[in-house]
Design a protein around this nucleic acid. Structure first.
Lengths: 319, 319
DNA sequence: CCATCTTATGCTCATGGAGAGTATAAATGG
DNA sequence: CCATTTATACTCTCCATGAGCATAAGATGG
């Protein structure tokens, strides 16, 4: 290992050959509910190996998702790549890496495959939905269990560090809730052995925090996707990938709130949307409304050309 | 392909086996110059295949970088994963993917390997340095050539789209320069066949825009790293990974400017740094100064614990 | 027809952060 | 003493943002 200064050329040793899985976090928002496409009785994300026939990673992903769910893939962006060893297979198992993607679509009727299904992402992360205020499990279950986990550390310094980390990520001790920390929260719960995945991977006591688990690392990947999407809607016009062609401003707002898991100030929301000229009126009004009828809008495709690169803002108020 | 509803289990077909390369964009800032570690006579980034013996992707990367450059890897974060086919090897060549990382360190004396060397990243992207105003090549070479490329499109609509894209990414036609678009700029130049890589990959006329090329996709990966770092310094305290233990505020500012490729307002910079309590005084003064002596500061390690997750701000003024 | 409910929409106001400029202090070298 | 260089302290304006008030426009029930 000491004198390797030359970059090795293309020699595919059998030993160094690996397999790559493509995994999709496919999101849609329906009736103010953020949904993700699942297979295997809601326990796994659409996925499959990157194969010889695939022309590119994205093409491979599209092939798998369409085969498994019957749903075409629209907007796609890469999330993260990680290697899985020790968790799946023994120490001698060959390397297996997962390349994960975030996809955005609209839910369409009767297009699911046999085992494919849309599920609310809050079924997997019940602590992430703060639209009606902080969920009860936070104060009742998560906070005390994390406190216990912090106390269980050997050294006082570590105890303090642990608790501070918990307080920051979950907005405890009077701190603000930050919806973008979805991944950090999941990882913390995993470390603290409070969810089924920790028990399964490391063996340990029983899991305690509610929320549906998934196959292998899929819930972790889902958390990554949620965090990414929550961050991205604030500065890029990606919400529109999830909207129907025509919508009211309230519907748009509800979608944003569904993703962010928190409410926004209605008037300020509209102000921001309008002053950025993200949408234009269709001229028609929304049918079947309850109160005062609302104008219908459509996304101004122009902004993709004008600003795809640059940025957009959404108000996701703090405090 | 039609009725595959079940996710395939772990079967490593020989055909679907692939190779994964680990590639590092290792950055340091020395004397106000942003440098990257290179090998092969400055034509490649440190890299090597992910091997059976590697415990994780990051461990594999660290092993390769240390073997090739003698430099230990500090802060590391993943950049992007992509598959390379058609470019390297024929259409029947097995899949080969690259997993790229961004690493931040301090340049240390005499630690380079035989073929390893630090190079200024502006050698590869001369159009990215706007510290002394927009570089001459922009107006003299890039803008006219991009205009010609836009005009060369068949349809008027495409001509317009092309030129708008060029204007947005390069800040032409009176638009603002956005330093975060480094990757988009590189990709545009590639598409417009103005750089050696395009000529090499697709065959075409001679390359025109100055700037050193690299092996395979390495310059593209470098652009990805630059863009990521430029975006990240604005909201995370990553600059400190690149600073010595003690530094003056001006040195800190110069480092930020080196990375961003643009100048910042001195007073505002200090105001922001101080009000966020990112640094603390060491008590000592900087030696060998020219004008009025400056206080030495050190990074407050505390903020990593307090705010690692949350965020920091740097002033990178627009206009 | 009126009261009430629901949603849409317009407007105002206070606060704070960011960009930019002015002024002064502390050192060095002639 | 003066020019030069860097450090440091203030100030001022503009605008984005969070938040609240008020009104409009429809439906529904008595």
């Amino acid at each position: 290992m000491s004198k390797v200064n030359k970059r090795p050329q293309t020699t595919v040793t059998a030993l160094d050959a690996i397999t790559a899985d493509l995994v999709a976090v496919l999101v849609a928002v329906t009736d103010g509910d953020p949904r993700i496409m699942t297979i295997e009785h809601e326990a796994a994300l659409p996925s499959g190996p990157f194969q010889f026939g695939h022309r590119s990673l994205q093409m491979g992903l599209r092939a798998w998702v369409e085969a498994q769910t019957g749903h075409p893939l629209g907007y796609v962006e890469q999330l993260y790549t990680f290697a899985d060893r020790g968790r799946s297979g023994g120490p001698d198992a060959p390397h297996r890496i997962s390349i994960s993607y975030l996809g955005l679509t609209r839910e369409e009727e009767g297009r699911e495959g046999a085992d494919a299904q849309w599920s609310s992402w809050y079924d997997y992360f019940p602590w992430e939905d703060h639209r009606d205020g902080p969920p009860a499990i936070l104060a009742k279950i998560i906070a005390p269990k994390l406190k216990a986990w912090a106390r269980a550390a050997d050294e006082p310094a570590l105890q303090k560090t642990r608790w501070r980390r918990a307080a920051i990520t979950f907005g405890l001790d009077g701190r603000e809730w930050n919806e973008e920390l979805a991944l950090q929260r999941y990882e913390l719960l995993y470390e603290a052995a409070l969810i089924p995945e920790s028990v399964r991977d490391t063996g340990g006591s029983e899991a305690i925090v509610p929320g549906r688990a998934m196959t292998s690392d899929h819930r972790r990947i889902l958390a990554t996707g949620i965090a990414r999407l929550r961050a991205k809607i604030k500065y890029r016009p990606v919400v529109f990938e999830l909207m129907p062609d025509e919508f009211t401003l309230l519907q748009l707002q509800r979608s944003v709130e569904a993703l962010a898991g928190r409410l926004v100030h209605k008037q300020n929301f509209r102000r921001l949307i309008e002053q950025q000229e993200l949408v234009e009126e269709t001229g028609a009004m929304a049918p079947d409304t309850i109160g005062r009828p609302a104008k219908l809008f459509r996304f101004r495709q122009g902004v993709l050309a004008e600003r795809a690169v640059v940025g957009t803002k959404l108000p996701l108020s703090r405090s």
